[in-house]
Design a protein around this nucleic acid. Structure first.
Lengths: 228, 228
DNA sequence: CAACCCCTCGATACACTGTATTGAGCAAAT
DNA sequence: ATTTGCTCAATACAGTGTATCGAGGGGTTG
């Protein structure tokens, strides 16, 4: 009390605290990430968007990583699960496409997926559906490997796709400036003669769109599974 | 000059600046990451390990992300390339195993791989070798898809593996405490009845080691490629 | 109705991050 | 011999995750 009462300002009439919930927190964190990417998600910003101080969130979370885990599980929850009648391969395909669609809606999901243990209820449900689709008459270990294989492909593929999209959109929205930025470097690399196949590819190949590439790769993976 | 010379201390006899190079920077950054993970890599720590101030690094890098890119390419450089005589499928398999081996040596590589555009010379060489191995008589687009498929699987798989390893080693080195931490939760989830296949798997399946799973998945992927 | 207590929440603080700016000292060039 | 330019370190700043603390209000008890 280093000031007299007369000088000291009144307490700032604290606004009625906004009711909070884990769901609301995750929701606004996802919204922040949707526009601005994962780096736009900080506890301070999330709290500010909710009209509260940062430390309040620690009542609902122990750590920022837990927030990311919750966000991850929220996205898993958006992936529609095929109904159990669906035949195995078709179900796996549907899950894969659902996962990719989720990444298209939430680019940042590509940064999280496969990165931390997905033990949330929705991730488990996704896993359950995959496993059920893959399970056949044989030993369950086969189904595990099938799921591992497909999901590894899916996570790797969606990351690749997002990465490439960013490579373009980072240099500026137009393809022009990207050409000017990286093309000369690549040109020089190709001129070195060390990458003949790459050079031929860059010259000849027509670059197909992401959908087609993903589907084609997925088909190859699925056809290697020797599933009943 | 707010003090008289007599009071003012001598300049700290600045130590002869350590000669630096991009290679040395990347090397020590990788060393720091090897013990301590990616979060142990900060420009300050790298600089300190080199005996210099942080800002000096900006002569060699524009950004921390560039350092991570260099580290990524350094690891790509460790992957042995199959000699060009090797038959296509065998070469792809060798590259995949080489990539996985690199991740075993540098866990942090799993966090970087597939995350940012790998345009460094070593990554390009890896890509060139993959593309050359995948290229057949058909259109080059087929080879692109093949490479995309295999590499997507590999990146996804190694991330999965590292993630699982961390899940165990994070809770404490012993399996005991992990059981105590997550097992009750999973138990309750399984008891909910929503994850029957998962439950059966957790109960019945013997968990095979990472090598076997990776190889088995890779074989499935490769066998789906319909490569000559 | 009054007094207490707990518990929730915000303010403050700390260590740390990446990076911009500034200024000092030395080497080379005029 | 003087100036110029370049290299590097010190300082500074905004932002991060999180620990600590103190005040305030709501519910429970006298």
């Amino acid at each position: 009390m280093d000031e007299l009462v007369w000088e000291r300002p009144e307490p700032p009439a604290r606004a009625a605290p906004v009711p909070l919930s884990r769901a609301r927190i995750v929701e606004t964190a996802c919204a922040l990430a949707d526009e601005g990417g994962l780096e736009a998600v900080s506890l301070r910003k999330v709290a500010a968007a909710l009209g509260s101080g940062p430390m309040r969130l620690y009542g609902y979370l122990d750590t920022k990583e837990e927030l990311l885990d919750l966000m991850t599980d929220a996205v898993y929850g958006e992936i529609p699960l095929p109904d159990p009648e669906t035949e195995g391969l078709a179900a796996l395909r549907a899950l894969a496409h659902g996962c990719r669609a989720a990444v298209q809606r939430h680019e940042w999901f590509a940064d999280l997926i496969g990165g931390r243990p997905g033990l949330g209820p929705n991730a488990l449900a996704y896993l359950e559906a995959s496993l059920a689709a893959a399970a056949g008459p044989g030993p369950i270990e086969d189904a595990m490997i099938t799921v591992f294989t497909v999901h590894s492909y899916v996570t790797g593929a969606v990351r690749s796709e997002i990465r490439e999209r960013r490579l373009i959109s980072d240099t500026g929205l137009d393809e022009e400036s990207w050409q000017r930025a990286a093309a000369p470097y690549l040109q020089r690399m190709f001129d070195s003669g060390r990458y003949p196949t790459l050079l031929r590819t860059a010259r000849d190949a027509v670059h197909p769109d992401g959908d087609a590439v993903f589907s084609a790769g997925l088909d190859r993976v699925l056809s290697g599974l020797s599933l009943s």
